[in-house]
Design a protein around this nucleic acid. Structure first.
Length: 410
RNA sequence: GUGGGAGUAGCUCAGUUGGUGGAGCGCCGGGUUGUGGCCCCGGCGGUCGCGGGUUCAAGUCCCGUCUCCCACCCCA
């Protein structure tokens, strides 16, 4: 084959593309009835937007971004995630002034230069929401509830883990305590964690290595170091989640890979995905808007991995729908073309077989496209002026005289 | 970026010690001169991922490369 899709990107052709649409439809249905409005954002931005927001030390920025220089000498990056652009747009358009309490959602491709694996592609799709302006714990709970609703709507089984990673006040104190604890045990950590210990000690907490987990199990918990404000906030979030009937598990070692998170963080994980088990994740990021150059504005959001959700989607039986027109002879074909046009104008799905093969071949085609009805127009029908309408699920066939009568029988 | 496994028909896979490539499913057609699904019969369909090497001879052995899968890593 001379041309192939590049490594880590894939085409979605039917029926995969239909599964994709099903996920997006369910997502939109749930978030729209919760009052979120869609934003359509660029797939590339100045690279430094991501460096600033996602974090210089994060792997996403350090080694996974598609960065290039455009013809005007600008340093561009294909977006590796959606929040940075949403925040940039919120600030750029002064939305904080016009509509300080804003609920947005977005759907689209993201790009990360990673080694491909199931549930991890170089171009992948995320559907996400962002809530700007709300500092109250009720917003955290509502956000998580919306996420839970989406997964339920899709019948995707996932377990929810939550944690609070504190704020500017308390996190540094915890970080110090953790470093203090780990310092004496560096020898017991895996090589990756030795490096994490230097760069971002919190990441040692969610290492999968058995030895590291042993060490970590005795480590100080951030929840014991939260300041009064963060502790109260976290307690309220949990209280509201219980009120809303959302099941969750507290994981004091849950941390996230993006630098902008504060206070509430959460992850929905599925057992059906192998190593890439997170299907939806997010949290609060109260300082990000300020850092991007907007007014200090509390915010929170999440992103769902559409590709990953698709992998978990149960197969759906395609149901029969519409009409397939079968004809023989030029006169019948012309009548068929007009009939199809008529039905479509009435909102009915209608197709015609242009190949004019045998009735058997055309019936087979009608069956394959999962039509509910076949309309047969042959010599007899043309001569005597009627349509033969066959219901494919039952095999029952009847004569109908006019288009209107046909329409009434569908 | 690291480690492991795999690439043969559209799909799932057989292919014996190297000797001119098969099955099932699917697709097209026929059995039914005007009727789908079940059954029977026939047909189309392959540079054996790509490139190089060994050999009289390579799907089969060797090297390289690309892609996919799994794990690490990372993350949605």
């Amino acid at each position: 084959m001379e041309y192939r899709a590049l490594r880590g990107v894939e085409d979605l052709i039917p029926p995969e593309s239909l599964r994709f649409e099903r996920v997006v439809d369910a997502f939109k249905r749930v978030v729209e009835r919760a009052g979120f409005k869609e934003v359509i954002l660029p797939v590339f931005e100045e690279a430094r937007l991501f460096t600033r927001s996602v974090g210089e030390s994060s792997d996403i920025v350090k080694k996974e971004m598609y960065v290039f220089e455009d013809k005007g000498g600008r340093v561009i990056a294909l977006r590796p995630e959606g929040t940075a652009s949403a925040v940039r747009a919120y600030v750029e358009h002064g939305v904080y002034a016009k509509e300080p309490f804003t609920k947005w959602f977005y759907v689209g491709p993201m790009f990360r230069f990673e080694r491909p694996q199931a549930g991890r592609k170089r171009q992948f799709f995320q559907a996400g929401v962002e809530l700007f302006g709300f500092s109250q714990p009720g917003a955290d709970a509502e956000l998580i509830k919306v996420a839970d609703d989406i997964l339920k709507e899709l019948s995707v089984e996932a377990t929810l883990e939550i944690n609070s990673i504190g704020c500017k006040e308390c996190r540094p104190k915890y970080r110090e305590a953790l470093i203090e604890f780990l310092k004496e045990r560096v020898g017991q950590l895996c090589p990756d964690c030795v490096e994490r210990f230097e760069r971002n000690p919190l990441r040692v907490l969610d290492c999968k290595n058995e030895g590291c987990r042993q060490v970590v199990s005795g480590a100080p918990k951030i929840t014991d170091y939260l300041c009064d404000g963060c502790r109260e906030h976290y307690e309220k979030v949990k209280e509201y989640l219980n009120l809303l009937g959302v099941e969750f598990r507290e994981n004091p070692f849950l941390v996230r890979g993006l630098d902008y998170y504060t206070r509430t963080v959460f992850e929905f994980k599925s057992s059906g995905l192998g190593a890439q088990s997170t299907v939806l994740a997010g949290g609060r990021y109260d300082y990000l808007i300020g850092e991007i150059g907007g007014p200090e504005t509390p915010a929170l959001g999440f992103a769902m991995g559409i590709d990953r959700v698709m992998l978990l989607l149960p197969e759906l039986e395609e149901k029969r729908e519409g009409v397939f027109v079968i004809t023989r002879g030029e006169e019948a074909y012309r009548e068929g073309l007009e009939l199809v046009n008529f039905l479509r104008s009435k909102g009915i799905k209608a197709e015609i077989d242009h190949r004019q093969g045998s009735f058997k071949a055309q019936m087979k085609a009608a069956d394959r496209v999962k039509a509910e009805f076949a309309v047969i127009i042959g010599e007899e029908e043309v001569k005597e002026g009627f349509y033969s309408l066959k219901e494919l699920s039952t095999g029952k066939q009847e004569k109908v005289e006019t288009r209107e009568e046909l329409l009434a029988r569908l």
